[in-house]
Design a protein around this nucleic acid. Structure first.
Length: 472
RNA sequence: GGUGGAGUGGCCGAGAGGCGAGGCAGCGGCCUGCAAAGCCGUAUACGUGGGUUCGAAUCCCAUCUCCACCUCCA
């Protein structure tokens, strides 16, 4: 079976074939950098990151472009509210998003274009739309003429007349109330730094146009996949598609949308103010646990975020990384190269090829971990080695290989940990002697004392090992 | 009103006509001096009412509830 992906435009799963064999161009709508990233924001990034890793693992060269929208109504409004420069605010939150992506092991995109760096491309695109008869100017602003494009609404199956007309903006100068802005004439209330020259006078780009312009610049007139959160389907993606088609571009061949993170069934949202900040979550939990929680649910299913969600993910992470650690100690750690070329179990491949069915893929990972643990117990090193390689290869596809550079615990090589290790080892030896003498009281006293210092002792046939207790 | 989704065991979550995915929690056991970790076993689950079928969580009809988008949102 080859990779099949669900396409929002056709509302069905389709076999995925890149425009150019072996090369995949992906555009992902990134952040509008107006405030701090919350858990929900990370979901589409992690979902597309898994897609990228799976495509690469399947032999493709992936070019993923994830934009930063650093100029829009909200950024200007919030900056004004807080008496700060809009561009300073935008950069501050752009950095927070970058940190969050990095913390979760999301690969760097090939390009991360900012809207403000592409005003020229947007102006050119708007000009083409106007020239083609799909846009019109009114007092320095330019609007998109939705009636002029027969298949407007095709992405989300909307009939123009059924849409509730927007009530938030004056419609008298629009040909149709659903017409949307391409270019906004400068307002005196807005800072001069948020204004650029254009054929229609000074102003700034409206929302939607930046993605059309930047996708074209980096990925061409036609590209493979466009992704984003579910809420972007309409109007954002519908309008992007309309703009690009109106300008004569073919645009995206397949549309992927990731679902919400919800709390008590309701969408996590900036405007609702119920967003769990990434920084808050990472204060309490290992970033791999957060990634695991986000990636572990199918990307098109709602992910209900409850108190137990991260606790569960933490336990799962401990189980996975614990196995990798124990197995590596016993049979040696495969190299990154060996992990990369290892053959993946068929059940795993089938699941991933079926619209990235990560939950099914995970079921197979757990089964392999169980087999690996059993092999460690029974002393079957060959089976343990095979399970270790397989588990790491599968987890690597999900960006969750515990022994990868991203997640490997290198702290044991720091001075403090080396010092601690020698102290704990002395205790472990003392306890071992006590146990040999059946002096259980002394042995337990040592273990209890270490436990009080958050150090966990685990006995095994190979001797005792210690670790710091997991954060929770 | 239009459009797109969802209702699965204590919880999280797959599946989509016939061997009860997987995880967490629980219970029983193995291992252990005791633990921890690990392993084995363990559940009259599929919103409701009808229907089709030898057989339905999966198909059909009806119905209830919830969510999202149509205003900014990943």
């Amino acid at each position: 079976m080859t990779l099949h992906l669900y396409d929002t435009a056709t509302r069905s799963e389709r076999a995925f074939t890149p425009l150019v064999a072996g090369k995949v161009g992906i555009y992902l709508c990134g952040a509008t950098v107006q405030s701090s990233p919350h858990v929900g924001h990370m979901r589409s990034a992690v979902a597309l990151d898994v897609l990228q890793r799976w495509l690469e693992r399947s032999g493709n060269d992936v070019t993923l472009v994830r934009n930063v929208t650093d100029i829009d109504d909200k950024i200007l409004a919030k900056a004004a509210e807080n008496n700060e420069e809009w561009w300073a605010r935008a950069l501050r939150y752009e950095r927070e998003f970058s940190h969050a992506y990095t913390a979760l092991g999301v690969k760097y995109p090939a390009a991360e274009p900012r809207a403000t760096g592409h005003i020229q491309q947007m102006v050119q695109l708007i000009q083409r739309i106007v020239d083609n008869g799909h846009g019109y100017e009114h007092e320095g602003s330019v609007y998109f003429d939705v009636r002029s494009l027969p298949d407007y609404g095709s992405l989300t199956n909307q009939a123009l007349d059924d849409l509730t007309p927007a009530t938030d903006s004056p419609a008298e100068h629009k040909r149709d109330p659903r017409d949307f802005a391409l270019w906004k004439a400068r307002k005196d209330s807005e800072p001069e730094t948020a204004s650029w020259d254009s054929p229609w006078g000074p102003g700034r780009p409206a929302w939607h146009i930046e993605c059309s312009a930047m996708a074209k610049r980096y990925l061409g007139d036609e590209f493979d996949i466009h992704g984003g959160g579910l809420d972007l389907r309409f109007p954002h993606h519908e309008n992007e598609l309309a703009q690009s088609r109106a300008a004569g571009d073919r645009f995206a061949r397949l549309w992927m949308h990731s679902a919400w993170v919800t709390q008590s069934g309701a969408k996590m949202s900036k405007s609702l103010g119920n967003g769990l900040l990434v920084s808050e979550v990472l204060d309490q939990y290992h970033p791999a646990a957060l990634r695991l929680a986000l990636a572990g649910v199918h990307y098109r299913s709602m992910l209900e975020y409850a108190d137990s969600t991260l606790d569960d993910a933490t336990a799962t992470w401990a189980r996975l990384s614990g196995f990798v650690l124990r197995a590596s100690d016993r049979v040696g750690a495969p190299t990154a190269e060996q992990v990369w070329v290892a053959e993946l179990p068929e059940a795993f491949v089938t699941a991933m090829d079926d619209d990235l069915s990560v939950p099914r893929a995970f079921a197979h990972i757990h089964e392999t971990v169980r087999a690996g643990n059993a092999a460690l117990t029974s002393g079957d090193d060959e089976a343990a080695r095979s399970a270790l390689l397989s588990v790491r290869a599968m987890l690597d596809v999900l960006g969750l290989d515990p022994a990868s550079v991203q997640w490997r615990d290198d702290s044991s090589t720091t001075g403090a940990l080396v010092a601690l290790d020698s102290l704990v080892r002395a205790d472990i030896e003392a306890r071992s002697d006590a146990r040999a003498n059946k002096d259980w009281a002394a042995a337990d006293a040592i273990r209890d004392r270490l436990a009080a210092a958050n150090i966990v002792i685990e006995d095994s046939a190979d001797g005792a090992r210690w670790s710091l207790a997991a954060d929770d």
